[in-house]
Amino acid sequence: MSAILETVGVNKTFGAVTAARDINVSVAKHEIVGIIGANGAGKTTFVNMVTGWLPPSTGRIRFDGRDITGLAPRKITRLGICRSFQVAQVFMTATVFDNLMIALGIADAHGLGVLLPLRVRAREERADAILRRYQMQDYRDQPASTLPQGIRKLLDIAMAMVAQPKVLLLDEPTSGISVEEKFPLMDIVMGALKEEGVTVLFVEHDMEIVSRYVSRVLAFYQGEIICDAPPAEALADPKVKEFVIGDDLHNQTLLQAGALQDGAQEVSDARG
């Protein structure tokens, strides 16, 4: 299978801090990749570099065979890489429906097409279809500022998907959401994403969630990838155990209960 996203020798330093060190990753089409690592390990920096928010200090990033290193976020978005954010980035004063309308409008607009009316029937129907796919119909006319945290994150992801990207990066889609809500939310998201056949990389702290959805794990530690393997293998890796899971109390409990191994087994079984 050909790589859709590839980083070659990517480094990023902020003054004395090295946030990325020699990152070499190759992601194949339709892969679902989990990115794990303690706080400050460089996960967001990785997402930021791939999506153009930060240029790498050195190294190249290729998308679909094309060098995208240092391109502006909007150019990369137009090429087909979109993202969600650790803190949802939505239009707070607009309703959920209008958020999607604006997103659809921008995705549709080319050249002078930006001067065409935003509110046309066909676009409104598409916005409503997205609302159904992400199960947000009940919040349709509510301003984004009044949404519960989980719904706002869902909207953030739905907006990232509006342009029908080939690659989607999710930065901690379940952060700030209670443990009980995490699975329902991720089920909605991953169900929708599977429907659209997009390649997904998502950052997640909760190993239970990672094990359930991904086929491959990238473990970050101090800017470096210390493990790149299927979930079951990654979880067994002593370095991952020490530097990633070791920090997190919730994950530790899970590990002891054997829950993670079982979940990971399920996923790899399902994928055959």
């Binding site: 502006a72 954010f85 607009a94 604006i102 607009a109 009316p117 935003l118 342009a163």
Partner: peptide, 21 residues
């Protein structure tokens, strides 16, 4: 118009506007 919606949208969140392209 679509460009017209980029008034309040830009005011609300420039990052999202950039990442919508």
């Amino acid at each position: 118009s679509i460009l017209g919606s980029l008034t309040t949208a830009v005011r609300d969140n420039e990052i999202r506007v950039e990442y919508l392209g």
